[in-house]
Computed example of a mutant assay.
Amino acid sequence: MLATVESFYRTFLDIYCPAFFFGTVAMQGILIYFILFQTGAKMGVFRYILGHTSVCQLILLFITISCQFRMISSKVPVEVRCYGPFRFFPAVYTYAMHQAFQFFLFMSGMSIIVTLYFKLMTFNFTRMTKAAMIITFLLFHIPVAFSGGLEIYLVITVSLPKEIQEMYSLKNIDVSLYSTAGTMKLQTVSFMNFLIMVGSVFVYPFASFWIRHRILKHLNHHLNSFSSHNKAQHRSFVTGLTLQSFLPVLTYFPLFALYVFCVTTGAEIIFQQYFIYLMPTTPALIDPFVTLFFVVPYRKKILTWCGLNKRSSVGPQSVSTVMS
């Protein structure tokens, strides 16, 4: 029975993964086109942060599809298998890719919070120099850098030693279906990184709602500083970012709950094993739709191209009023 279920999932994923990959690349490509060519120069730092988020999500997508990890949560320690094209590479590389997956998942989520924070600063009428923006960006990413340092340490100690590489070389002689990338043990370093990753997913929505509240408060307070049209655009942009910050909880929490259940009970849930990596990558496909809809000038431009908004003339300079 279990073999039949696994066969069904493998057949489904052989169709789903390429479709998800090309669909996401197409949407991210459209979004990057708008960021590069349909926004004004005054957009400044927001152009780079939105582009940074897209690049992180594309890297995350590449890792997800090229490795197609599966977490065997019922095993002790938890085993990570690689079913994608990277299964032909030595285990040290696939284990490093597994750690990189967590890093870029963290990085892409943090970018959304940074975007909201810089947006708040514009409503505080704070004139930030480029140096101040860079320092602020780096300060926000201290937890990401710390997590990345822990992940590098894990690669060096858990996968890089010669005897461990030889062990996995023998274990992965036949990689016709999958290879074993490594194991996950909640020891001191990995447990610290685990807490940072999981904690960040749940902090993002609270942080974004708080920043959104402050931004809307400024909008309502400075009634004479913005036209009703500009206020509507600002609200739409902020709402889109808030939804994006909430997506990781929706895509990650159900699988995380199943993961805890499987680890504690030893239950075998095939859906959890395969989709605990695929679901957190789903925002890479959804985020472009959210951005293109909630950034009003982008939406109007698309409607104009489709012949549904012929009266509106939207140029790149219009986006600057939303971002700045």
Rank of each mutant, 00 (worst) to 15 (best):
M1Y: 01
E6M: 11
I15A: 11
Y16F: 15
Y16K: 04
P18I: 03
A19R: 01
F20D: 00
F21D: 00
F22E: 02
G23T: 14
T24A: 10
M27T: 07
Q28S: 08
I32W: 12
F34N: 11
F34L: 05
I35F: 09
Q38R: 14
K42D: 15
K42H: 12
F46Y: 14
R47F: 06
Y48R: 06
S54R: 06
S54H: 05
I59W: 06
I65K: 12
S66K: 07
F69I: 00
M71K: 08
V76I: 12
F86E: 08
F86T: 12
Y93I: 14
Y93E: 06
Y95S: 02
Y95R: 00
Y95C: 06
A100H: 08
F101T: 01
F104R: 01
M110G: 06
L116Q: 07
F118D: 02
F118R: 01
T122F: 14
F123K: 10
F125P: 00
F125Y: 07
I135T: 15
T136H: 03
F137W: 13
F137K: 07
I142C: 10
I142Y: 02
V144C: 08
A145D: 06
F146M: 11
S147C: 13
S147H: 09
G148V: 04
G149S: 11
L154N: 07
I156R: 10
V158M: 14
E163D: 13
T180G: 03
K185S: 03
F191R: 15
M197I: 15
V201H: 00
F202I: 05
Y204W: 11
F206E: 08
H213F: 09
I215C: 04
L219C: 05
N220M: 07
H221N: 14
N224C: 05
H229A: 13
N230R: 12
S236V: 10
V238T: 04
V238A: 02
L241Q: 05
L241P: 06
S245N: 08
F246N: 12
L247V: 09
F253Q: 10
P254T: 08
T264A: 11
T265I: 02
G266M: 09
T281R: 01
I286D: 03
D287M: 12
V295L: 02
P297G: 00
R299Q: 00
K300P: 01
L303K: 10
C306Y: 00
N309V: 14
R311T: 15
V319Y: 03
T321W: 06
V322D: 04
S324T: 14
